[in-house]
């Protein structure tokens, strides 16, 4: 029990919060056919962090998150710029921007790799869930002990705040969000500001991705933006129910993935632990696979119905 509290409670909680937050936003990304914006943003976090390190010289969380945030906004702005001014298809514009910025990140990283800076690509991709240890979390009593609570890894607090912000956004903006996702022209005619809604959504996606990125790495973020929401889309025809399903799937993936990563090798007799972030994303993918095969609403309905 103590071992679980010290080593697993915080990583598990962080995984669950991140997964559910990303899945919540993912519902709208999937409906708007913008799923890959999460992918693009997670890739450009790397150059953002490297540049912020080169400027500030620290690897402090705040500087890193600021750098990643700026990179995300630059990416979104560049994609829009290229799409509108150059009349390039949206997904192609996205491909141009995020790969180029990623290249900048890798280049700067390798250039400074010689200087012995510990900042590697792997960390960015896999995160370091395993390092979120709660040293004071000994025994259940620690849960109500202010001294022990003060020792909680700061990542937990950060992801919790981000989760709150995302939930508040979805509740307050639910109507314009649905309107702009369903019918942007009509939304514009109602002065529901679809462009502003787009921008806010993408900003929150960036915030969630970056908060998650620091704690759990970027692959889990991309998977969680898409897989639970996509699977939920195949389960129901109601938006409310879809969001509920996506939250359940995210929770399931986080718990099952985390436990599998820690325990599965032991069952097979290996004394190793696998990447928890990787396993969570893999489980999310498997859930989607199951939904694709058995989901009650998996077929298209609205397409091409004419009298």
């Amino acid at each position: 029990m103590n071992e679980f509290m010290v080593f697993s409670l915080v990583p598990l909680a962080v995984s669950i919060i991140i997964s559910m937050t990303c899945a919540l936003l993912g519902n709208f990304l999937v409906l708007r056919r913008q799923s890959l914006i999460g992918d693009a943003i997670s890739h450009v976090a790397l150059p953002g962090i490297v540049v912020s390190f080169l400027i500030t010289g620290t690897l402090a969380s705040f500087a890193m998150m600021l750098g990643a945030g700026v990179a995300a906004l630059v990416t979104v702005a560049l994609i829009e710029l290229i799409r509108r001014l150059g009349r390039v298809e949206g997904s192609a514009a996205m491909g141009v921007v995020f790969t180029s910025l990623f290249a900048v990140g890798v280049l700067l990283l390798e250039w400074h790799g010689a200087a012995g800076v510990h900042l590697d690509v792997e960390h960015a991709l896999y995160g370091n869930l395993e390092s979120l240890i709660w040293f004071e979390g000994v025994g259940l009593a620690a849960l109500i002990d202010p001294v022990a609570l003060a020792d909680l890894p700061p990542q937990l607090g950060r992801v919790a705040w981000v989760a709150l912000a995302v939930v508040a956004f979805v509740i307050v903006m639910r109507r314009p969000l649905v309107l702009a996702s369903f019918d942007p022209d009509f939304a514009a005619s109602m002065r529901a500001r679809p462009a502003l809604v787009d921008l806010l959504l993408v900003t929150l996606v960036a915030v969630a991705a970056i908060a998650a990125f620091e704690a759990v790495g970027s692959i889990i973020v991309i998977a969680m933006f898409i897989c639970p929401a996509a699977a939920a889309r195949l389960m129901t025809n109601r938006l409310g129910a879809q969001i509920a399903w996506s939250q359940c799937f995210a929770l399931l993936a986080a718990v099952a993935g985390y436990l599998l990563a820690g325990e599965a090798p032991l069952w097979l007799g290996f004394e190793v632990s696998l990447s928890a972030a990787g396993m969570i994303a893999t489980v999310a993918g498997l859930i989607l696979l199951a939904a694709c095969l058995f989901g009650p609403c998996r077929a298209r309905t609205g397409a091409a119905q004419h009298d």
């Binding site: 992918d39 998977a223 898409i226 632990s273 993918g285 694709c292 077929a299």
Partner: peptide, 26 residues
């Protein structure tokens, strides 16, 4: 076969496969 758009299909496959690759690397 499903109602999901190609963007979701691409994103789901790329993230899941990559994640599984990372598990294998560990």
């Amino acid at each position: 076969r499903t109602r999901l758009g190609e963007d979701a299909a691409i994103g789901a496959v790329l993230s899941t496969f990559f994640a599984f690759g990372v598990v294998l690397i560990t």
